[in-house]
Design a protein around this nucleic acid. Structure first.
Lengths: 346, 346
DNA sequence: TTGTACGCGTTATCAA
DNA sequence: TTGATAACGCGTACAA
């Protein structure tokens, strides 16, 4: 049996109130008693019961985190875990607990996301991998607790938003290729379900239009997986007049495309330049190492906690790297990480 | 304000006791009342307060998970997150919450691991990445709550243990190389702090002795990182009579070694065969794709939850794949995943 | 400076 | 079949 306030009180022949106050260092308690109480507390290996505390304070100090994914249960989702890593570390900093849900909306039957949150007395919730078209999205907009979504902007009043500046990222990548002399720049796109897909496509379209080099035949639709990228690569290889460069909306797709292209005799970057997105750690190990747009998922994770706790009234230190658009929106600027998969066009 | 039992009771003019019983489907309550209660509960969007429940049941239904790592805070630890993924999914299955700590023992000052557990009212705790020589290890042996450690066996009564069969794994890898005709098989070892290092070394030593081909000059000490592997690779390349094969205790080290060897003109697998350990997803992307020993971290994570909950008296379904040595020990058999980094010696 | 009494939301026991 | 009461461990208003 764990020791409680009562045990300490009994041992010292005082009331539990006195003990409680002493341990919480209230100023209306005697110094000698404080000393005594602390001594006995240590002696009995006392540690406060956070559950009781939460019940009485009616604060759970808990955030829910949903890692949504269509992937196989046993597969690891890179960006998701990068976000999570930042989320955990930041939440720990503020002494908040995290309850993690990996449930997919396909598996939810009776219970909605918010039901799960209510059950666990979660004070705020963070979503990663949320899909436009998720059947529960309307409910989230009217949530009574703050809902922070990474990479998807909802328009409810209690909806917070953390994203990477996709426009900026795409522009960085495209400008880099453009400056290397490329004009035929293909795009490998992710599935339309993700908000980022739309944004990134828009940026691509704008940039290419502006330069007068947009061709809709150079847009290939895939699904953010390596396999999808492979198929896009096959299509590109089969083109009569293949592009001189490819920008892919994810590294995995870029890697798939590289495989396909190489199997058709293309040499990278001599014959075709490739830029990926996400800068997952695999990019270091591909041949050639892949130039990629880094979203800084760790910082996005941290920011998502910061913006949520801020909404909950905590005194938060937002960190420098993030661009705080409003109390409801934070944008992180991605950066281009240049490796060896692109070459100047002769 | 969230609705409580009281609200429902008031609305129906009955006692909270009746409401509680109705919602929990006790058989000593009237069917009509049950119906009514459920209707109103749904109407008021009632959801039970798990904190109050936990307080009264004196069960937190929470497991602590420590992901220890010496790595940089912003780096993702592959095996760690693979374990975690299995842990989360399995815990959710049994309706247990997870409290995650990424704290490193270097950062703990006053509070020990168990202090953190006590504060959060954790019923059991799972460690990944625990180091022999961790200053808090003695305390863990005498823990009042079940302590499950992945990859490190402690000898306390409340200590549970999940591991991959390292002996089996090493033997698989070495036998494979041996059957390909290799006799000069170098070992790249991880740091001595990890229990797995010792085990794997022992297996290597035994195997090589048995075959009469052990040479202590072929053992290279590194630290499980890519950089360490690189340095070992340099040493191997500098050897007057380099080995024809290398077995590395981690994929990252194997990849580092490959880089070093290739930079010295070695062609893999023509000049030298390489086997890694962990089968992290990067192995698919190396050139050549790396043959590796797969620990199945996802299942190890699941098993660690199962063995912990079993100890806590839950009715657990242990799954088939795992070898349950005792109530305190589960061993998962690794498998060799053959790719293209090894070749038969001519 | 210390103690009493009560409440947080739920469940279990026992009485009605 | 239903309800009153107490208890889980802690914090806080108010009284002493």
């Amino acid at each position: 049996m764990a020791t409680t306030l009562k045990d300490i009180a009994k041992k010292l022949g005082v009331s539990t109130t006195a003990v409680s106050k002493a341990l919480n260092d209230h100023d209306d308690i005697g110094d000698e008693l404080k000393q005594e109480v602390r001594r006995v507390a240590r002696e009995l290996n006392y540690s406060p019961n956070s559950i009781a505390r939460k019940l009485v304070s009616r604060k759970s100090r808990t955030l829910g985190v949903f890692m949504l994914s269509r992937q196989n249960k046993s597969e690891v989702d890179h960006m998701g875990y990068t976000f999570l890593h930042g989320i955990i570390n930041e939440a720990n900093l503020y002494n908040y607990d995290i309850v993690l849900f990996t449930t997919n909306s396909d598996f939810l039957e009776e219970k909605s996301y918010l039901d799960l949150c209510r059950e666990r007395q979660v004070e705020g919730v963070i979503f990663t991998g949320l899909h436009l078209g998720d059947p529960h999205i309307e409910e989230l907009k009217n949530s009574e607790i703050p809902v922070t979504v990474i990479d998807t902007e909802l328009e409810g009043t209690n909806n917070l938003f953390v994203t990477s500046d996709n426009h900026f990222g795409m522009k960085k990548g495209l400008e880099y290729l453009y400056r290397l002399g490329h004009r035929q720049i293909a795009l490998i796109s992710g599935h339309k379900g993700a908000a980022v897909t739309k944004e990134r496509f828009k940026s691509y379209h704008e940039f290419m239009q502006e330069k007068g080099i947009f061709k809709k035949d150079l847009v290939f639709n895939a699904d953010y997986t390596q396999h999808g990228g492979f198929e896009a690569g096959e299509e590109i290889a089969a083109l009569e007049k293949p592009p001189t460069a490819v920008l892919s909306m994810s590294d995995l797709m870029a890697i798939g495309a590289m495989e396909a292209l190489e199997s058709h005799g293309f040499i990278i970057p001599e014959d075709i330049s490739i830029v990926g997105y996400d800068n997952i750690d695999i990019t270091t190990f591909t041949r050639p190492p892949l130039t990629s747009i880094d979203q800084d998922g760790y910082d996005m994770g941290r920011s998502s906690v910061q913006i949520t706790l801020n909404k909950l009234g905590e005194d938060v230190n937002f960190f420098e790297g993030a661009e705080k658009i409003s109390d409801n929106k934070i944008v992180i600027k991605p950066k281009l990480v240049i490796r060896d998969s692109c070459k100047r066009l002769k």
